[in-house]
């Protein structure tokens, strides 16, 4: 029973973090007007969060559907894809998730992970300086979930909100031709290992 709850705790913590990260990426990449963002403090770090209800609801609905996959360790990667006017990917922020076997985990240590997120976010923010050349072309975004094999027959797991259906992503959104790979941060804790890197479209 404790292991079951543990999966939920991991998913809650990760989704809370992913929500902050998505807001920050959208702000840094100027996908939306800066006026809809407000400065907040998360994980002891100043971040920018949208205060637009429609956008916030979309992000929350997306992560609400991702959560069961993380809970069951069925999500291998969560990817925030930034796209240009033609809906071609400009950048892919890849959050690669792996969890240790549940039985080896000390439940009480799960909360210590939060203190590490701040560093992760700062590094995330530094992506601006690394890949700022792409900024002007960012027009929209989508969130992709790469499932593990075990989840391939469980599309219904992700369709937990009635009016928020999921589909298999187009090939052009999933792969970029000869991307420049920028590793940003790797973080390991007792409960989860997360690696963040950016795939950037080659400059023409």
């Amino acid at each position: 029973r404790q292991d079951l709850n543990f999966g939920q705790v991991v998913a809650d913590i990760l989704c809370e973090f992913l929500e902050v990260a998505i807001h920050l990426i959208l702000y840094v990449r100027e996908v939306y007007p800066s006026g809809i963002f407000q400065k907040r403090k998360k994980y002891n770090v100043p971040v920018q969060m949208s205060c637009h209800p429609e956008l916030n609801q979309y992000i929350q609905d997306t992560l609400h559907c991702v959560k069961p996959l993380i809970e069951k360790n069925d999500a291998e990667k969560v990817v925030v894809v930034i796209m240009d006017k033609e809906h071609h990917p400009v950048e892919r922020f890849v959050f690669e998730i792996s969890q240790p076997p549940l039985l080896s985990i000390r439940f009480a240590s799960s909360f210590s992970v939060k203190s590490n997120w701040g560093v992760f976010l700062i590094t995330n923010r530094s992506a601006e300086t690394l890949t700022g050349g792409q900024k002007k072309r960012c027009c929209s975004f989508t969130v992709l979930v790469h499932t593990r094999d075990a989840a391939t027959r469980n599309m219904e797991k992700v369709q937990v909100i009635k009016d928020f259906p999921w589909i298999v992503a187009d090939e052009q959104e999933v792969h970029m031709k000869e991307p420049r790979l920028i590793p940003l941060k790797s973080m390991t804790s007792d409960i989860v290992k997360m690696q963040l890197y950016v795939e950037e479209r080659a400059q023409k």
């Binding site: 429609e54 979309y58 929209s140 969130v143 790469h146 094999d149 999921w166 298999v168």
Partner: peptide
């Protein structure tokens, strides 16, 4: 997709920059 796994995405797109701008003007 590689390894027999799926890559999934929401069917609905997020609000566009233009939609967000128009709602800001309404306020």
């Amino acid at each position: 997709a590689a390894g027999g796994a799926y890559v999934l995405k929401p069917l609905m797109s997020p609000p566009s920059r233009e939609e967000i701008l128009s709602t800001l003007m309404d306020l």
